[in-house]
Amino acid sequence: MIPAAFDYVRADSAEAAIAALAEHGDEAKLLAGGHSLIPLMRFRLARPEVLVDVGRVDDLKYIRDGGDHLAIGALTRHMDVETSELVQAEAPLLAAATSHVGDPQVRHRGTIGGSVAHGDSASDIPSVLIATGATLVAQGPSGVREIAVDDFFEGFLETALAAEEILTEIRVPKVGGAGWSFQKFNRRAQDWAIVGVSVQVLNGSVGIGLVNMDTKPIRASAAEAALVGGSSAADAAEVAPDSCEPTGDLNASPDFRRHLAKVLTRRALEEAGVS
């Protein structure tokens, strides 16, 4: 299937991309690796009038040690995140979850920033950012700002990014050898998660992010609070879907998704060493 026609603008820097977005407003979309956007455009579920291609902005392709966190450029490809020794050592949950994104061909093109900025509840990476308590860095005409992950995902494919802002960096806290787990339930290897769970043991608490359990990526707040209150992992997992409003589709009813969230959260907590 062939996407609707659009005007193509190639940006060679973050500033050029921001200027192009400011010029075209709501009619423009950013194109990074294209593995969220192009499938939507082929079905004409998305029909941007202008595509601003940031795929060649090499300044935003990096993985750096930022002291207490890893700083990952938004245009870093999934394959480079997955195979980075730094990510494997300091943010092993991110490396593991990234290896479950799509398939090798998808990971050769798709970028961490593109995936996160798409804001899809069914994506794996946002759950990792929620579980680890990541920070997102956005750049716009008036400068750079940091956005806590809990303020980033606002609704169905909606994020806190303004129309003329671009996501430039993802800061993932370094966790060293702390316990973690990524659980993904799907029916075929390359599919989106029907439900997924990221668990990261942090200093004095446990972060739990859920995949495909609401219209947006969501934190299992009730389960986290239960653990802080002294509940066992098994009891905490029982309340994992509380406050979630999962949708139903041909793969799963909302009730089945709630069931999966409980089972997968329990498994994830156990694998992460939370008892």
Binding site: M1, Y8, R10, L31, G34, H35, I38, P39, R42, D53, G55, M79, G102, D103, P104, Q105, V106, H108, R109, Q190
Partner: peptide, 27 residues
Amino acid sequence: CDTSSCGACTIHLNGESVKSCTMFAVQ
């Protein structure tokens, strides 16, 4: 497949496998 699923259109871009149905020629 037209849905980025099947891999029948796999080629190499700079030596790495990619799905050529999920790229624009201009890229």
